[in-house]
Design a protein around this nucleic acid. Structure first.
Lengths: 124, 124
DNA sequence: TCGAACCCTCACACAAATGTGAGGGTCAAC
DNA sequence: GTTGACCCTCACATTTGTGTGAGGGTTCGA
């Protein structure tokens, strides 16, 4: 598929898809005419990138952890330097913290909404 | 306490504290000499702001949901317009999605780390 | 009274993610 | 063979969260 279709299917602008590629987050083949060509798996990949980006991780980090999240897990022992492992552990912990923080705050928002609803229509 | 102490206790630069104030995320009193003065609760507040920021929420949104997360919950019925409630519900759902996404990816990283460790020292 | 260590505002700078548009190819359908 | 819908690269613009520094007060201890 070409960039237009991928853009539509992922809800991501063409500009951004090119940017992600430039940042090494996604890859594409090139047709003879120079057009980018993507396969089906790119849809998921873009979704993953967007999710991580939305979660606050910078492309720099995403680029490093993405290989570890590939579907048919291929362990990249070459990449598994101590530094890389340390980075991964660190990011894993940060992700846990973030997730818990988000859930706590989400619960607080829920509680607020419940309270407001319980008083709906009641006098202040 | 003055900005320097708050900065140290929260690990946040003075510059950023002033920025958060400018964005309406934290408040401060002013001493006669013009210095900002914070009370104890500011420490938590700053932590909360940083956490939400780190989770990827923009100051614009944080500013709107913070009042609902205050400790001694004071329901701001005035703020509880239908738009506000819709925003909150939306953000709550987004936070849930983000958290789940983070946890899923964290698990994937953990799995990767486990695999690498299981093969530690083994031939490739 | 001098200097160090604070504080203030203002303003320019920067990186990251993203938008927008210019200038220009490709290709299919009419 | 022209038009419209794609695609390309390049490059400048904008927003957000930050850093940094200039220029200038306040406070306090040596």
């Amino acid at each position: 598929m070409r960039i237009g279709e991928l853009s539509e299917r992922t809800g991501t602008s063409r500009r951004l898809l090119r940017y992600y590629e430039e940042q090494g987050l996604i890859v594409s083949q090139r047709c003879e005419n120079g057009y980018r060509s993507y396969d089906e798996s790119s849809v998921d990949r873009v979704g993953q990138v967007r999710g991580l980006l939305d979660a606050g991780l910078p492309t720099r980090i995403i680029k490093q952890i993405l290989p570890c999240l590939d579907k048919p897990r291929v362990i990249h022992f070459r990449d598994a330097t101590p530094e890389m492992l340390a980075l991964l552990e660190h990011e894993r912990d940060r992700m846990t913290e973030r997730a818990n923080f988000l859930l706590r705050n989400r619960d607080a928002i829920s509680a607020y909404l419940d309270e407001v609803r319980a008083n709906a229509g009641a006098p202040r």
